[in-house]
Structure formats: structure tokens, C-alpha cells
């Protein structure tokens, strides 16, 4: 089993004809993802070819929904069109929306998130690498080559750091149920707790790896949640112990402001919740292996 996506998930891609969009859609299809439609305003009626597959392109998601019945969407369009694409997907009734696009203004996300909550739609991202269920399907950037099926659920704020950790797990022969990148923006959709709940409920997930970073208090909230509600073992890593306060470390959300958002605070909260926190990402896989008795 897996969470959020599997090989039956029917994906519509907003921005399928763009440079990035077409490249990653082809990678997703090659991996086995069931991409059923693409959307690019003005290019409705075109056919997007990927290998021997022919994917219909529509002007709007609504039209894609009317004829191809998708149940997940991926948004990979420039920042100034991305918020509109989020509203469009939610309005068309797509229940699970992944937005990869980076650089969306925070105030726009505050309003979009409120709208999504009212609609009951789930958003992953923005500014995230997406998610991957090994051997089944992926939405987004996570390279399929580093993952393999198995019992560990991975959830992370980061992109490449996550690939690093998945790769290390795989090299030790420890596979994954699903790997989820929630992104590092200050206001996003799905957060750690949402994913922890899903992993806790997923019968195939035996162990959870959670990778956080400085900024905000999502890790602290997750720690409190783990203490109360997660029965499965969780192993963690927090990036940014050496980050100077007051400087934004790349991600719009990665900033230590005064005493809030520090790595120390997060590590302390996690350890207090019984979660081992690795000092070095190279150790995460080893700790997981040990705790799983491998």
C-alpha cells in the first residue's frame, strides 16, 4: 500500500506543454504514472506525446475533468500563473493538487489555502518536489532511480536532501511506501501532521522518516502530534543548525527569527517526543536500519 498516490491515480498536468512541464511529465509517464490529461490555455486540442502514449491537452481543467476524469493534479507553471491554477484545480473538484511552482507570494497563498480548506481539497506544496510511491507512480521531481518499494514512509520539507536520504535508505536495502516533499514555503498545504496521520493509518508503513528544517514551528507541532498519536517509530533530521539568525536560507520559510524557528528548539521537541534526530543525514538510514532490526 501507499499514501496519496498509486498506479491508478489519474493525473492532470497544468503546464504540460512548458519546458519543465513536458520534461517532467515524460519522466512521470516513464515511471508508470497514469497521466490522463494536460492543460495549457490556448493549446486545447493538441496531443502531448510521451513514448507510445498520446495525452490530450485541454484549455482548462474543467474541460479535462469533463472528458478524462482525473483525481489528482500537478501544477508546473510560472509563479504568476500558479495561484490561478491552484484555484482552477480546486474549483474543478480535483481532490488532490500538487503545486511544484516556486516563488508564489505569501499573501496569495494565505487566501488560496483558506479557499482550499473551504472546498475540502488537499494541496501539496507549493515550492515542493512532489511525491513518489516506489514502483507505482510519481508526481513531481523526485528521481525514480533512487527509490525502491518497502516499509518506510518519508516526509520532508526539502528537495535534494530528501533524494539523498531516500538514496541512502535504498542503498541499505530499505525501501519506501511513499516519499512526500511538503516544500519549504511559509504557507503551504499539506504539512507534517497531515502526512504523519496518513502514514500512521497505512498498514504497510512500518517506520517514518521526517526531515525538517529551520523556520516556523511545523516540526514542533509534529513532535507534539507524534507524542500523542503516532505509534510507529519516527526517525528525524533537521537542516540548518549552523544557519545565522535573521537570514533566509534559500527557502522562503527557512529563517530563524529571534528565538523562534531554531534547529535546537526543533531537535529538542522531537527528542522529547521520543524521536531520534540524526546529527548527519548520512546516519539516518543507519539509525532506521538499526531500529528496524536490520
Amino acid at each position: 500500500m501507499s499514501i496519496l498516490i498509486d498506479k491508478n491515480t489519474r493525473v492532470v498536468v497544468s503546464g504540460i506543454t512548458g519546458r519543465e512541464g513536458s520534461f517532467h511529465t515524460r519522466q512521470m509517464i516513464e515511471y508508470g504514472t497514469n497521466v490522463v490529461a494536460g492543460v495549457t490555455p490556448g493549446k486545447g486540442g493538441q496531443i502531448f506525446e510521451a513514448g507510445d502514449q498520446k495525452i490530450p491537452v485541454f484549455n482548462t481543467i474543467q474541460e479535462a475533468v469533463e472528458s478524462t476524469n482525473p483525481n489528482a493534479s500537478m501544477i508546473i507553471v510560472p509563479a504568476r500563473f500558479a495561484v490561478d491554477a491552484i484555484y482552477e484545480a480546486a474549483d474543478a473538484g480535483i481532490p488532490f493538487i500538487t503545486c511544484l511552482t516556486e516563488y508564489i507570494p505569501v499573501l496569495d497563498m494565505i487566501e488560496a489555502r483558506a479557499y482550499l480548506d473551504a472546498k475540502g481539497a488537499r494541496l501539496l506544496g507549493p515550492n515542493c518536489p512532489g511525491l513518489l510511491t516506489p514502483g507505482e507512480a510519481k508526481i513531481g521531481f523526485i528521481p525514480g532511480s533512487v527509490a525502491m518499494p518497502g516499509p518506510v514512509g518519508v516526509v520532508s520539507k526539502s528537495g535534494t536532501l530528501t533524494y539523498e536520504v531516500i538514496d541512502a535508505l535504498t542503498r541499505l536495502g530499505i525501501g519506501q511506501t511513499t516519499c512526500v516533499g511538503i516544500g519549504g514555503d511559509p504557507i503551504n498545504g499539506t504539512d507534517f501532521i497531515d502526512v504523519l496521520k496518513l502514514f500512521e493509518a497505512d498498514p504497510d508503513t512500518e517506520h517514518i522518516v521526517m526531515i525538517g528544517e529551520i523556520g516556523g514551528n511545523a516540526e514542533e507541532k509534529a513532535a507534539a502530534f507524534i507524542k500523542e498519536h503516532v505509534t510507529k517509530p519516527v526517525t528525524s533530521f533537521i537542516a540548518g543548525r549552523t544557519a545565522p539568525p535573521g537570514r533566509r536560507m534559500g527557502h522562503a520559510g527557512a529563517i530563524v527569527e529571534g528565538k523562534s524557528g531554531t534547529a535546537e528548539g526543533k531537535i529538542e521537541a522531537l527528542r522529547a517526543a521520543g524521536v531520534p534526530v540524526a546529527d548527519n543525514p548520512d546516519d539516518i538510514a543507519k539509525i532506521v536500519a538499526e531500529r528496524m532490526g536490520k
Partner: peptide, 28 residues
Amino acid sequence: NGAGLAMTTMDVTKLFGGEPANFLDIGG
């Protein structure tokens, strides 16, 4: 490449007794 990995690279450098001269993420 990548902000999370860039921070982590600084952290691990420091863990082994070094001092990073910068944070640098070349982006995706």
C-alpha cells in the same frame, strides 16, 4: 543544489570541525 541540502552541507562541515564561508544554493 537545493536549500535544504545547502544548509545540511554547512551543518556537516561544522560537525567535522570546519567553518562554512557561505550558504549557496545554485537552484534547481
